[in-house]
Design a protein around this nucleic acid. Structure first.
Lengths: 129, 129
DNA sequence: TCAGCATGCCTAGTCTAACTATGTATGCAT
DNA sequence: ATGCATACATAGTTAGACTAGGCATGCTGA
């Protein structure tokens, strides 16, 4: 992310958020990896993209933690795909994960919000609105 | 961060956000590293904490990128501390960094928000409100 | 007095997550 | 049949947040 580092094309996921995003998509609908990648781009209006080298390892982590189950299924086109579905433990983890993510990013936003009281006067105490 | 991983005491910074948070604090008031660490805890009401092993490397990165300047100064207590202040380039990077961070976390929030339309019906198209 | 603690800075090494690059295979359209 | 989108996977790189130390100083209380 490194702040105006951006020589790379598109912004990436802050560390830790990818598992959560994928889990949330799977929670809405069981689906396969490749489609998850395209959903990420669609839903984010192209603001986010998952590389396959991030996608599949992430799905493996979720599976290893038993937050999702994977099952080979034959599609209508006759193609074999790996369908991921959320487990009960996954639903719990998702709820908790969203909670924590929201809390942390909320706290961070507090630092970054310059909306008001940007200027601080002579006091040696930094003030926040 | 890894979602309910949390055996460690307190939540940490999503990768990439620390530089931005520190830069935003320095932008409000030039100050030294140790105090930045305590400000982080104060301002976040204890929800965030920076370890010193993250803090000083982060400040070095900011310095290397010329987003901050460092200067040894003697405090009233007679103690020598390293005061960091933001540069013009730092202000630009801060603005852009906040912009990007907001965009990315906003996009992610779109995935995590289950506020409404959590249930998706039979369609093979995932819907988002 | 001097022991301990908070202050203050720093680095070496570990861990992990997101990445790049690559390899494989199949269905479909031209 | 040639290429392209689909679909899955792994090996290796990179980078950032961490753990675990080391060092030095000022103040406070027993």
């Amino acid at each position: 992310m490194g702040m105006a580092t951006a020589p790379s094309s598109r912004p990436s996921f802050p560390s830790g958020s990818l598992d959560l995003v994928l889990l949330s998509l799977i929670a809405r609908q069981a689906t396969h990896g490749y489609r998850l990648a395209r959903l990420v781009e669609e839903v984010s209006d192209g603001r986010l993209a998952v590389e396959e080298g991030s996608l599949y390892p992430s799905l493996q982590r979720l599976k290893k933690r038993k937050l999702v189950e994977a099952e080979w299924q034959k599609q209508e086109n006759g193609r074999e795909v790996r369908i991921y579905s959320i487990t009960p433990a996954g639903k719990v983890a998702l709820r908790e994960g969203v909670q924590e993510w929201t809390s942390v990013t909320g706290a961070i936003a507090k630092f970054l919000n310059t909306k008001l009281a940007d200027k601080i006067e002579g006091s040696n105490r930094v003030r926040f609105a």
